[in-house]
Amino acid sequence: MSEAIGVQPVNPVEPFLRTERMPHIWCPGCGIGTTVNCFARALVSSKLPLDKVAVVSGIGCTGRVAGYVRLDSFHTTHGRAIPFATGLKLANPELTVVVYSGDGDLIAIGGNHFIHAARRNADIKVICVNNFIYGMTGGQVAPTTPTAALATTTPYGAFERPFNLPFLAESSGAVYVARWTAYHVRHIAHSMSEAFKKKGLCFIEIIAPCPTLYQRRNHFGDGLEAMRYYKQKSVVRNGANTRDVQIDLQGEIVVGKFVDIERPTLKQAMDLQLRQKLDLPPSNGGGSHELD
């Protein structure tokens, strides 16, 4: 990370950004930029060839990531990042396909795609930045908004039970499930580089502050205040049962790597099944005899 000191050292994340688009649209104190920083560091440490990495985003504040990273990227319609990414991976298995989107896009509008991609174990890396609210559209209640939190559409407090995302991901079939907050920057970068190496659907939830809509409406202070809350109230519990990691309003946040298992990916399962049924020789592991 420490470059040799030249005349003017460049920011280590600069090569990963479309700097002509800076400053970005994210509010002061928003945690999305921090996660992008971690993402860039994870790409550096995992030494992936950058022309083999593709970022797919949906709509929303986090959806803008695809437009800010200097990688092959696609900004899909609302909620459809995962189906696009699944197709991309199947058509070009060499790619490392990263879905980078928000909770509203991935879990609300794209919720069905998410559970089915996890069920099929599509080989994509899903990074979900969870800020507990629909940010870009004006702070409406989301399926991740904690009960009793205020949103523009729940002026008396949300009365629905929110999703427990790691539990949802695990029970749907994801092979790697982790949750961190924007405070845990080194853990995020480490988790991301682990996910890049792993085959199958890897799900990383990152709790990030939305200072403008969630924090302010609920009188929780600014982005920095949210980061202090994450620091104080989060407990690292690797391998915790995902049933027990539900987040309550300003309550304890259990973070860590919860699931890390092996299971055939969508393409491997298809390959195996078709070879058995069609009496084809078993795959030798190389690319030459793969079904396409």
């Binding site: 920011n11 921090t34 920057v185």
Partner: peptide, 21 residues
């Protein structure tokens, strides 16, 4: 110390630190 944690936290890519050799 040049740990670059400021660079890792910065959401606006505005700060970074380097370690002197």
């Amino acid at each position: 110390t040049g740990c670059d944690l400021c660079g890792l936290y910065c959401p606006d890519f505005a700060i970074f630190a380097v370690r002197e050799p």
